[in-house]
Design a protein around this nucleic acid. Structure first.
Lengths: 110, 110
DNA sequence: CGAATACATCGATGGGTATCGAACAGTACG
DNA sequence: CGTACTGTTCGATACCCATCGATGTATTCG
């Protein structure tokens, strides 16, 4: 199920791209926060994840996560609702998302 | 158990570093080849993994994998024997290594 | 000792990327 | 309509990184 042309279809997901998307500390926080709240708008997620970055930088990270296939973006009024592509990720990379989500926080902080 | 000062101890492993190390296609091939053969010297692993890169580039990748904690390097005569740090990775990031190792090849190739 | 093997390191280069502020575009609302 | 809100895009900057050839170092072997 393709959302639109800005999201890759499941068959086009690639492990190196996904790993690179998850390798950034800010994006890792976004993904783990999304897992807790289910779905969220950009502004709200930025607060939930505790990110002190500019809105343009957040937008950049959102794009990287979306283009790698990690998250899904749905438009609702004036805001974009972000959510994890759990099923697609589990189908392509079994166990990967869970491993990233369940890693202890002490192994993430610098 | 610390090998030497060029390897991080288990408590110092960090998820973003490990993910970044695994996010490169060449290094991903090295890790998956290491999983098949158990352990291997540099020259032999380069052939096993089917990598057509220069020796200096291979040495660079080996260093990244080592400094992130993904692999272990042991000196044996004039050669270095590489192997995965399975137990340490499983202890810090349960399920991550298996997920990377068991991902279908079609999701790795470009 | 001398030659060959196995890797590491250095310096250079080109391409990627994280970051920001400023400017832009769409929606909601009074 | 005009203001506020939500988010994207653009251009610039600084930094990181993958790659290579050349050089250096240690080990093995004859």
């Amino acid at each position: 199920m393709l959302i639109d042309e800005t999201h890759p279809v499941t068959a086009d997901l690639r492990l190196p791209k996904v790993l690179a998307a998850l390798a950034d500390p800010a994006r890792l926080l976004m993904v783990r926060a999304l897992n807790r709240v289910g779905e969220s708008s950009c502004t709200r997620l930025q607060q939930t994840a505790g990110l002190t970055i500019s809105r343009s930088t957040f937008s950049h990270h959102q794009r990287v996560l979306r283009e790698s296939g990690v998250i899904q973006v749905r438009v609702s009024g004036s805001q974009r609702i972000l959510s994890l592509r759990r099923d697609d990720l589990d189908a392509c990379f079994p166990g990967l998302l869970n491993a990233v989500l369940h890693t202890a926080s002490k192994f993430i902080e610098t």
